Amino acid sequence: MKPLYKITAMLSLLVLSTNSFATTPTDQYIDPAKIVGFIAGDWNNDGGKDHAILVSPNNNFDEDVGLYLFLEDNRNTPQLALFKPNLAWSGSMWGNIPSLALTAGGSLQVLSQNQAIGRNRWSQILTIAYRNKAFVVAGYTYESRDTLDLSYKLDCDVNLLTGKGVKNKKPFKNKAQAIKLVDWTEKSIPKQCQEE
């Protein structure tokens, strides 16, 4: 594990090296205390080290966690490729905090969840890939259960690039669509994966 001062220095370099924003946040400074998740990968397959950072909003009023995506340029300097505000819901306790992961193929995953409060427990995974010089939502996975009604369960997984999905072990097919991450909203969620 890297010492905290090295991680802080690396994040400071990322912030100081940002020159442009796809979606401009009101403040270009990332407060280290607001960082919820951090992961590195190579999403554009150029051999560089790219980074993703989940950051809580500064005002904490009716806003969800935002995602910063950095791509390393040919000078090994990270450049901000995209900022997507309000991407992942976040609570304040364990089981409600979003996180980042990588798929076996190297795509980025953003997990948000409620595993701690109320009877309705759920988890959502957005799988994000880099295609044609843009970040797209390539997959959507949603699971929910009711802690009081044990017969209720929703499992839904869709590959948005092919349109093929599975809901509660039954396959379905939608039109293939590569939705750019910058355009993703709750309305983009496939109807099969929405709570009834």
Rank of each mutant, 00 (worst) to 15 (best):
L154D: 01
S188Q: 14
L181G: 06
F38R: 06
A116D: 07
Q79K: 14
I128K: 11
Y29Q: 09
D73H: 07
V15L: 01
L160D: 09
A33L: 12
I125Q: 07
G41P: 05
G95Q: 07
W43M: 07
D157C: 10
K175T: 15
G95E: 04
R121K: 13
P25V: 09
L100R: 11
F38K: 06
G41F: 07
N60E: 09
K175V: 15
D149T: 05
E143A: 13
F172H: 08
I189G: 02
P85W: 12
C156P: 03
L4Q: 07
G48Q: 14
K170T: 11
G163F: 13
G118Q: 02
F172K: 10
Y68K: 11
R131N: 10
N74D: 15
K164M: 10
Y130K: 00
R145L: 12
P57V: 09
P32Y: 05
N132A: 15
C156Q: 02
D155R: 05
M93P: 00
G48T: 09
D146E: 08
T127N: 08
R121Q: 14
D157E: 09
K49A: 14
D42H: 05
Q177R: 14
I7E: 03
I128N: 01
D27W: 07
D42R: 08
Q113H: 02
E143H: 13
S90Q: 04
L11F: 06
I189R: 08
